[in-house]
Amino acid sequence: MLDFLSQPWPWYIAGPLIGLVVPALLFLGGKQFGVSANLRHLCAATIPGPVEFFKYDWKKSGLWNLTFVLGVVIGGFIAHTLLFNPDPIAISEATKADLTGLGLTDLNGLVPKEVFSWSGLLTLPGFVLIVGGGFLVGFGSRYAGGCTSGHAISGLADLQLPSLIAVVGFFIGGIIATFVLLPLIF
């Protein structure tokens, strides 16, 4: 059983399983699925400073969601230990060729270790991808009012036009970063 579950899960199984989180949260407590709201709760909890945007009762509105992402960390740990799969991710040959062309040599694991590691953080590409990418994810998700879970899944599922605009924006940004920024960074 564990061996079977340790294989990579195909998209047509994993996709619907992710979709189920939306009704589960609604039935449980009428909550909206959205992970990036936690970044705001973390600001409110730690460094609200003089900023009006962070002056609210984060425990009341966000403790459920912070608990949810604590679960996500634990779930990642369980998947990494009990359901570990040592094989490289089966991305397409074309992607492998493009990434090798960028200069990446190790395509094993979940992330390229030469960049996403403590030693990689001290290199220019590592710093830009981790610190720069993280900053843009935080700034952009709050500016757009949501991230992949809040807009691309919950928002689109509720047929909200703002979410469609946001998702189109996600892809414009992603394409620019992939085809323009990455070749400059590496």
Binding site: V72, V137, G138, F139, A166
Partner: peptide
């Protein structure tokens, strides 16, 4: 939504992770 979305998308592609996957 448009501008915030583009900024988020830039970060998503660089980091290779949106908020859920970061955790």
């Amino acid at each position: 939504y448009g501008v915030g979305g583009i900024i988020f998308g830039l970060g998503w592609a660089l980091l290779g992770a949106c908020p859920g996957p970061i955790f």
